[in-house]
Simulated assay, not measured.
Amino acid sequence: MSKTLIAAAAAPLLLVGAASAQTAPAPAPAQDQAHAEHHAHPTIDSPIEALVNDPATKAVLEKHLPGMDKHPAYGQFKGMTLRQVAPCSQGAITDEKIAAIDADLKALPAA
């Protein structure tokens, strides 16, 4: 996917009101939390910024959504999960893409 497509996909985030930007991500279920602690990498339910800050998970994100951390609106959506950003992505972040990213994240060796 080109950076232009990512830019177009995230552009609607600029239109999201301040209230949406301030909404905290939903806490991960206990099972996911336990997996995250054991696995020591961010999960699909982690904020995008956490995925970008971990080299192993950033590689997975880059594989499926290259250049996401370079997007001009990154500062506005970095605290959101991929599932939260998906409805605003104009189809660039699909359920299938989220599932593929999730599978790759779960396949990472523990840090």
Results as ranks from 00 to 15, higher is better:
M1E: 07
S2N: 15
S2T: 11
K3W: 12
I6H: 01
A7P: 00
A7F: 07
A7Y: 10
A8R: 11
A9N: 05
A10E: 14
A10S: 15
A11M: 04
P12R: 02
P12M: 06
P12E: 12
P12W: 10
L14R: 05
L14M: 14
L14Y: 11
L14A: 07
V16K: 09
G17V: 01
A18D: 11
A18W: 07
A19L: 12
A19R: 02
A19G: 02
A21V: 02
Q22H: 11
Q22A: 15
P25R: 14
P25Q: 06
A26I: 07
A26Y: 08
A28S: 09
A28P: 03
P29H: 13
P29D: 13
P29T: 04
A30H: 13
A30D: 14
A30R: 14
Q31A: 12
Q31I: 01
D32T: 15
A34G: 01
A34I: 07
A34D: 13
A34H: 06
A36Q: 14
A36G: 07
E37K: 09
H39I: 00
A40L: 06
H41Q: 10
H41K: 02
H41E: 09
P42N: 03
T43V: 03
I44Y: 03
S46M: 10
I48T: 07
I48N: 13
E49H: 02
E49Q: 08
A50F: 00
L51A: 05
L51Q: 08
V52Y: 15
N53D: 14
D54G: 02
A56F: 05
A56R: 13
T57N: 06
A59C: 09
V60F: 05
L61K: 04
E62A: 09
E62P: 01
E62I: 01
K63C: 07
L65W: 03
P66K: 12
G67T: 00
G67R: 00
M68E: 04
M68N: 04
M68Q: 09
K70Q: 14
K70L: 12
K70W: 05
K70P: 02
H71G: 03
P72K: 03
P72W: 13
P72T: 00
A73N: 12
Y74L: 00
G75W: 08
G75D: 08
G75F: 08
Q76K: 09
F77N: 11
K78E: 06
G79C: 13
G79K: 10
G79A: 14
L82R: 12
L82G: 05
R83Y: 09
Q84S: 11
V85Y: 04
V85P: 05
V85R: 08
A86M: 08
P87E: 02
C88N: 09
C88F: 10
Q90E: 14
Q90A: 08
G91S: 05
G91R: 14
G91L: 02
G91V: 03
A92D: 03
A92C: 05
I93A: 10
I93F: 04
I93H: 10
I93G: 03
T94K: 13
T94F: 01
T94P: 07
E96N: 12
E96H: 07
K97Y: 03
K97A: 02
K97H: 11
I98P: 11
A99W: 03
A99Q: 15
I101H: 10
I101L: 01
I101S: 05
D102E: 10
A103D: 09
A103Q: 11
A103N: 09
K106C: 00
A107T: 01
A107S: 04
L108K: 12
L108P: 06
P109S: 06
P109K: 15
P109W: 03
A110I: 02
A110L: 00
